[in-house]
């Protein structure tokens, strides 16, 4: 097994892949949100991730000042926060900003460093949204993904393999939101009527983790 590392370029690829996936799944996210929310998750996420890709492009056109993992993730977080709006803006913004703080001023993260950053991001999302597991939120996909990533790496798996396991866990977590009763956000006003619908936030998180599995962990 080769020694993999998540450098600035890899993180850049991850974010761009996530933006592509969000764009492809924009209508799905909005449809899921119209059932239990306010029908804007797809358009908000797409607008935010397009702005993020534009911010990354601008940084590289200006001679790539984003030389550390921390700087790149913080730029992503700040752009997301100022362009998504609603509740998803602060939640995704906090995820990336906390990842950036955890990553720090390094050019590349090792496997454990990336896992620690993602877990720090999860802790930020939990603190910001005050959601618990089973509340039918982003956390229901993100928490199992973080746990799976950490456990797989601890068990000796490489990053590539561990991220694949994490992506499967995120998908399973996403699907598990369907029978849940929403207890946070606008969906919670629906009470029992929120049961039977897949959570849009958990769905976009699954896209994020799948994008990581597709872009990180092995050098192209």
């Amino acid at each position: 097994m080769t020694d993999t590392s998540v450098d600035v370029e890899a993180l850049d690829r991850w974010i761009r892949r996530f933006a592509e996936e969000v764009s492809k799944n924009k209508d799905l996210l909005t449809d899921l949100d119209s059932a239990i929310g306010d029908a804007d998750h797809g358009s908000n996420m797409d607008r935010g991730m397009s702005a993020t890709v534009a911010a990354l492009d601008e940084a590289s056109s200006q001679g790539r000042p984003l030389t550390t993992a921390g700087a790149l993730l913080k730029t992503v977080g700040m752009t997301v926060v100022s362009s998504i709006g609603g509740a998803s803006g602060p939640l995704y913004g906090t995820l990336f900003l906390r990842m950036g703080t955890s990553a720090g001023d390094v050019e590349a993260l090792d496997d454990a460093g990336f896992s620690a950053a993602l877990t720090a991001g999860l802790a930020g999302v939990v603190a910001r949204g005050k959601a618990e597991l089973g509340d039918k939120t982003m956390c229901d996909a993100l928490a199992p993904a973080c746990a799976a990533l950490d456990a797989s790496l601890a068990g000796g798996a490489g990053l590539s393999e561990a991220l694949a396991v994490a992506a499967t866990s995120a998908d399973t977590g996403r699907d598990a939101t369907i029978p849940m009763l929403a207890r946070k956000g606008r969906a919670s006003y629906l009470g029992e009527r929120s049961i039977g619908h897949q959570d849009p936030g958990a769905t976009s998180v699954a896209l994020l983790v799948n994008a990581a599995a597709a872009t990180l962990g092995s050098r192209p």
Binding site: V81, G85, G86, A87, G89, P90, L91, G93, T94, R128, G129, K184, G185, R186
Partner: peptide, 11 residues
């Protein structure tokens, strides 16, 4: 008290 408002003001 709306989820989005609370979080954006908090940040």
């Amino acid at each position: 008290n709306y989820t989005g408002d609370v979080m954006n003001f908090e940040m």
